[in-house]
Design a protein around this nucleic acid. Sequence first.
DNA 1: GGCAAGCAAATTGTATCCAATTGACAGATT
DNA 2: AATCTGTCAATTGGATACAATTTGCTTGCC
Lengths: 230, 230
Amino acid sequence: MSEAQKNTLSDAVYDLLRRAIIEQALQPGMRLPEDTVGDQFGVSRTIVRHAFVRLENEGLIVTKRNRGAFVAEPSLEEARQIFEVRHCLEREVVLKLIDRMPATGYDALEAHVRSEKAVLGKDGPVSIRLAGEFHTLMAELTGNAVLARYVSEIVTRCSLIIATFGRSHSSDCAVDEHSQIIAAIRAGDAERATALMAHHLGAVADRADLEEKKDSIETILSRYGRVAAP
Amino acid sequence: MSEAQKNTLSDAVYDLLRRAIIEQALQPGMRLPEDTVGDQFGVSRTIVRHAFVRLENEGLIVTKRNRGAFVAEPSLEEARQIFEVRHCLEREVVLKLIDRMPATGYDALEAHVRSEKAVLGKDGPVSIRLAGEFHTLMAELTGNAVLARYVSEIVTRCSLIIATFGRSHSSDCAVDEHSQIIAAIRAGDAERATALMAHHLGAVADRADLEEKKDSIETILSRYGRVAAP
DNA sequence: GGCAAGCAAATTGTATCCAATTGACAGATT
DNA sequence: AATCTGTCAATTGGATACAATTTGCTTGCC
């Protein structure tokens, strides 16, 4: 069932929508009418709905009964929970890789970092996706498909979180940090590798400005004064 | 989106099928024709299909193109991977609970253990389900919904693994071990609590007889000779 | 008697169709 | 003026109908 297509239309639609959300083309809160999406991709609503089921399962969209689907807007609480689980899972990934890295593992990782560097300046949607895929790649290298799947899901949701809360998307995942993590794994330094990963994830969370926008709509508007006394 | 119903038919079908698989009424490898399932529950194939999408996502069923859906038969490799991730996640659960257990947490856990003891002798499908739900309950008590969701998924898949490989299903999860884990958490003994959990999960895996049936279908049949020369 | 090709039945993949629910707007009422 | 209510449009929830694909069986041939 490799995340890749099974050559069914809904899988294709699923992949496309997922990509669009990751790359922040579809922004949090946006409405996704089944008709519109279907017309756009040239398939019927049936297909779109199947894709929606999966996307909702992964927390990328939410559907409201008889109202339709919307790109999810993770709450701050949800964001913290996701980062916490991500911490836990990626720690496992690092430990597993130190224990046993597959033959061509380092080559693959370093090749990926190179491609990240290649698009570093442009800071486009591609760079966002590549940053996430680095972590997915690491997870896949563990050889544990279940672990890889969860990491992949979590990383995707993190992209959505960054889209929701983050201001600057530039260098969301510092490429240098990726390199350092590889080096620590190579050195077999579990302590340092997990610490680096923890720091790296913390940095991602910080750049997402997770602390800041907890203001409610009331708080925000209150800064603009009043028209009449309360 | 709490695992509970959103009052849509496919959610209901999903829950029912999930339960049936957990309780081993639907056994691994069984075929699940959309028509049959639909007729049985009084809904159309459309609904069943939506439920199938989610079940497949969780690894409880597999679908083959133009062939239909089957209750999944996890491979041994898959089983090991699942237990590994389970280890990782439940360790996090235990640590989180030691750090902060909600007010009525212990009451809820002990009440659950009591209901487990209540059906101890009968060893029916209910006992299997309750054993898993103990772990799900713990995960929910952490307050991290994402973590709880993953644990729930993993626990379900473990039930399926046990159904696939296990011989004796009696006392799959020793209730006593559950009590001991609660005690260790209450004592704030992280070392002991995680060790107990690790041992407990190892025991579950052992009872599932994970080592034994590793024979492939080819290996098994080869013992029965040949009809014609290769 | 065994094997291959072709046909028929069954089952899934997809599209379209009808019904039910929701949200918004307008008008009436307090 | 504000609130409540009834109607209407838009959109989803679900079922049915049609097309495509696979499987198993039958038939003919070696």
